[in-house]
Amino acid sequence: MNIFRFAGDMMHLTSILVLLLKIYATKSCSGISLKTQELYALVFLARYLDLFTDFISVYNTIMKLVFIVSSTAIVWCMKRDRVVRRSYDKQLDTFRHYFLLAASFALALLVNEKFTFQEIFWAFSIYLEAVAILPQLVLLQRSGNVDNLTGQYVFFLGAYRAFYILNWIYRYFTETHFSRWIACISGLVQTALYADFFYYYYISWKNNTKLKLPA
């Protein structure tokens, strides 16, 4: 494992911790898209089916479990916690995420590394992760004002993607048989979706003003 991959994983972990902190500290999930969170929980559940079949490292196994548990806990909290669920911006979170699900699954059936149950679900999770942030970005755009923790949550998620791209570039030059074009192309698409958000995040950071997305 190289430093970029590790930094990416830590950014990913940080984003989840920031989100948990926001929900627990403020007892509110306003500005957070339940649809995006549901998609992420599904991404991890579909991708880590290999927990039962392949062992890569203790690090990988622990991280996989952490991602599954934390993402399902967030969804559970937003749906079931008496206090938290009242702050959910349901009327703003209207992105039709079932289309993303269907499209990702259809693509996984067509484009995969091997036509097996596990590989199809792996490809599905990669495609779904690439677009899972869309309901969140749409929600932020609609609500206009973004609170600090929500802004940082999306920032860390974007940083995680950026480090994964550096990781792939590094692996491409250091490993002899590095070819994973499904993950790389999807990863590029996913990172591109953050470009707009990063621009406004940078502007607000530079001017030391509250993050505001244009309508």
């Binding site: 290999d50 890569i56 990988n60 991602f67 590394e113 990781n167 048989h177």
Partner: peptide, 10 residues
């Protein structure tokens, strides 16, 4: 070495 179909990233 890892086989091609094993996914070593998260």
């Amino acid at each position: 070495p890892l086989e091609q179909h094993m996914h070593d990233e998260l």
